[in-house]
């Protein structure tokens, strides 16, 4: 019997090793350790043994069973691991194939520029003011020290709707409206929006374009405040190492009036094609609010002063991104628009 047991053990262990997968292994387990298996049979047959032999045999059978069980478990672990490896192998993929990209659009480059400027000024305590694109002659010109027949009206060719209404030629009427609304109170606003001029569309002209203007009114607003504010704007839009310079200019609604240049961001001031070899790039017009403008809106020009500035969003975007034709902003070619997706800096 002992011999028989040893032989069974050998057989079982051999079949365990031979089992190629978990199913075959289970068959081996059922065959040898199951209720109807030979080891169970042997245990059942122990009744025929003498009382002295029984414990000895019992121990022996148990030992065999434990050994087979242990080896079986070991073998199960091996085969399970093997099965997982096979599964992993089967499931492995070419990770270099492209993913299922989630479609994403993005802002128009002009909106991108405008929001960047809005955010800068909001952080400095400004509000954003908006107004109608169809304006009254009064807000677009007269309230800005440009009475009818003023030669400076020629600076802006205008689309008229009637004698008294027109497509605004700048966002300055929003300033005039805000001043009228605030009735003498201090103002800090930024005014973005579409504006219109009678121009034939070409690489550098567009009958519709976008402007962002700023207006600050309060007690003791100085030209140095304007310069400091414009410096912050130049650095935000074109980099911290930009320098600015002011040049005298003329706008009917400001006195003194200036134009602001920035040091060329491409050549750093040495002279290149971007700055037309001057080292400086003209960016915007600005000035101290003309007392007539303040008075027309009900401000006491002896008590308060202010500054204003106006930027063309297209000009900023063209310089910043190197766009060479203003019409790109209005043809809405996906191949153009999709380039303004990623972040910078």
């Amino acid at each position: 019997m002992e011999q028989q047991l040893k032989q069974l053990e050998q057989e079982a262990l051999a079949k365990l090793q031979a089992a190629a997968n978990l199913k075959e292994l289970n068959d081996v387990r059922v065959a040898y350790l199951g209720k109807k298996g030979p080891i169970t049979d042997l245990l059942k047959g122990m009744g025929k043994l003498s009382p002295e032999e029984r414990p000895k045999m019992g121990a022996l059978v148990n030992a065999v069973r434990e050994n087979v069980t242990a080896q079986l478990e070991e073998r199960v672990a091996v085969l399970e691991e093997q099965a997982i490896l096979e599964q992993l192998e089967k499931e492995s993929i070419d990770v270099t194939l492209p993913g299922r990209k989630v479609r994403q659009g993005n802002r128009h480059p002009l909106t991108r520029v405008i929001e960047e400027i809005e955010d800068l000024f909001v952080s400095m305590g400004y509000e954003i003011a908006e107004g109608p694109e169809v304006e009254k002659d009064y807000y677009n010109f007269e309230a800005l020290n440009l009475p009818k027949g003023h030669p400076a009206r020629d600076m802006q060719d205008t689309f008229y709707i009637t004698e008294e209404t027109l497509l605004r030629t700048h966002t300055s009427p929003v300033q005039a409206r805000t001043m009228e609304l605030k009735k003498g109170e201090p103002i800090r606003i930024i005014c973005p929006g579409k504006v219109f001029r009678r121009d034939n569309d070409d690489a550098t002209h567009s009958h519709q374009f976008m402007q962002i203007e700023g207006l600050v009114i309060g007690e003791n607003i100085r030209m140095s405040d304007l310069k400091g504010t414009l410096d912050a704007l130049a650095k935000k839009m074109f980099g911290d190492d930009r320098e600015i310079r002011l040049r005298p200019s003329f706008f009917p609604f400001t006195e003194p009036s200036v134009e602001m240049d920035i040091s060329c961001f491409k050549c750093g001031g040495k002279g290149c094609n971007v700055c037309k070899h001057t080292g400086w790039i003209e960016i915007l017009g600005a000035g101290m609010v003309h007392p007539n403008v303040l008075e027309m809106a009900g401000y006491d020009s002896k008590k308060v002063s202010g500054f204003a500035f106006g930027i063309g969003a297209e000009r900023i975007a063209m310089l910043k991104y190197g766009v060479d034709d203003i019409r790109h902003f209005y043809t809405n070619d996906s191949r153009f628009l999709s380039q303004f997706h990623r972040t910078e800096g």
């Binding site: 400095m124 305590g125 954003i128 310069k227 003194p256």
Partner: peptide
């Protein structure tokens, strides 16, 4: 100012703001 030189104007920021900026 223009004959004195605009480069000589210092850079400051407006004083005395009591407005909290923001979007509507």
């Amino acid at each position: 100012a223009r004959l004195y030189g605009y480069d000589e104007i210092p850079m400051t920021l407006p004083e005395g703001n009591e407005q909290i900026g923001g979007l509507t």
